[in-house]
Write a protein that binds this DNA or RNA. Structure first.
Length: 428
RNA sequence: GUGGGUAUAGCUCAGCUGGUUAGAGCGCCAGGUUGUGGCCCUGGAGGCCGACGGUUCGAACCCGUUUACUCACCCCA
């Protein structure tokens, strides 16, 4: 048997309604905030991610699906969306349009990782990007959008953590201070962290090993080593969030793994979805557009993992013992024909209903009436119309309401009346 | 890339210290008389016990290897 690749999923009709639900809530909310949808290629030049996401990031170093095409050009399946949007933003000259530019996307992404709860090799994310404003108001808006999406979905058990990791002006100095501190404790650090001393000391702050995290507790904090600009930006953001009554915590350990982040970084976290607890991650990237070959334009955005949102949503429904109100696709009418003549008439009726965009179905298995009733019940048809020889002779048939069990007579030629019954409209 | 757990019917799982025709519940299909679903009853289909190799008279069960799934680390959404 040929199996699907590791870390990918099939979404079957049973579960696709919850996907559509989550996706449509995200789309609606983004539209409400004035964001327009952008779509872009599934693969891009590898160079885009090397420069945009950053050579030193784990994503680029060991997680990309990179391949050569027939002309030996190197392409990569997108591991994230922001670099792609940045490329499209530049290539389509969106920077010549009025600012800000507000975009959202809903795409699948690919990273070569070992799958676990809340993480797969092909995953789906919803993201939003706001270009053109360096103001902390933009930060507040994008955070507010992310939060509103999560709330609109119906997830309430989550928290927002924010941090500032500085800008090219103040980060080098902070890195030096940080490195000095960790150097003094070098012998106690774990093996990987000793390596990080040289490559990226920021990462040590995020280390989960008990020893390292204890050492990290007393490490100099980025927010205490910000330049004047970054510092006031961070203060303003907090003012705006407070004004919007958006609760948050400052977590000085948030270090995003994508190299393009500057100043504000944030995460929305859920405790209900396993170890991969980040529902949404994002931050400001004032240098990104320039890095990938565009003009100097600031930006901020976030991405949220669809499967993690689904996990959090379903977990919360379970905890609160709520019946979720997501509609499944079931037919309004099922016709149970008996005999050849009835089948022909049944086909005609469902065809007419379908022309009017009313979901209708009939037996194509040649089953007995009883089996057809069972089937109609299983697919949750709202009504069943029974058609046999008697009905063809008299032109009148019984239509059964499957919820109440009630049966009424209808004329099989009177489609309009049939529709009225299906739609629960009083007929005169 | 590193570590832990698990692999028996479509699904959830039994299978006693290795002993011959491998089980249950759910699901699926068909019936319970003459044209009516949900409950109940009866019957049926469906498994080389993840794969390969070894020990043994004999392996779903013991040993080795491998693959997949899963959880965690790393990292991230």
């Amino acid at each position: 048997m040929i199996q699907k690749p590791r870390g990918t999923i099939d979404i079957l009709p049973d579960s696709s309604p919850v996907w559509r639900y989550i996706e449509s809530k995200a789309r609606e909310t983004a539209a409400c905030f004035g964001y327009g949808e952008i779509r872009f290629p599934t693969f891009e030049a590898t160079e885009l991610f090397n420069r945009g996401v950053g050579d030193t990031s784990d994503v680029v170093q060991k997680e990309m699906y990179t391949f050569l095409d027939r002309e030996n050009r190197s392409f990569t399946l997108r591991p994230e969306g922001t670099a792609c949007v940045a490329r499209s933003f530049i290539e389509n000259n969106l920077y010549t349009e009025t600012m800000p530019q507000k975009l959202y996307y809903l795409v699948n992404c690919f990273r070569y990782e070992k799958p676990q709860a809340g993480r797969s090799r092909e995953f789906y994310q919803f993201g939003a990007e706001l270009f053109g404003s360096g103001s902390a108001m933009a930060d507040a808006e994008i955070i507010s959008l992310a939060r509103m999406i999560i709330l609109n979905i119906g997830i309430t058990d989550f928290s927002l953590e924010i941090n500032s990791i500085g800008c090219p002006a103040c980060r080098p100095a902070y890195h030096r201070v940080l490195k000095e501190y960790f150097l003094s404790q070098k012998e106690n650090l774990c093996e990987t962290c000793r390596g990080r001393l040289e490559t990226n000391p920021l990462r040590i702050l995020d280390c989960k090993s008990p020893v390292c995290s204890k050492i990290a507790e007393n490490a100099p904090r980025s927010i205490e080593n910000l330049c004047g600009d970054c510092s006031s930006h961070f203060a303003k953001l907090q003012d705006y969030l407070n004004a919007m009554k958006i609760p948050f915590l400052i977590n000085t350990k948030i270090v995003r793994g994508l190299d393009y982040y500057t100043k504000t970084v944030f995460e929305f976290i859920s405790e209900n979805i396993g170890a991969q607890s980040t529902l949404c991650g994002g931050g400001r990237y004032d240098g990104l557009i320039e890095t990938v070959g565009g003009p100097k334009i600031p930006g901020i955005g976030f991405a949220m993992g669809i499967t993690r949102l689904i996990l959090a949503y379903e977990e919360e429904q379970k905890i609160k013992e709520k019946q979720n109100e997501i509609k499944t696709d079931c037919p309004e009418l099922y016709i149970a024909p008996m005999g050849n003549d009835a089948q022909v008439i049944a086909l005609d009726i469902i065809q007419n209903l379908r022309y009017k965009n009313i979901s209708a179905d009939c037996d194509i298995m040649g089953r007995s009436l009883k089996a057809q009733m069972k089937y109609a019940d299983k697919i949750k048809a709202s009504y069943v119309l029974i058609l046999g020889d008697n009905e063809i002779v008299t032109g009148a048939a019984e239509i059964k309401n499957m919820n109440t069990g009630e049966q009424t007579k209808v004329y099989i030629n009177d489609i309009e009346n049939l529709i009225k019954i299906l739609k629960n409209i009083e007929s005169d």
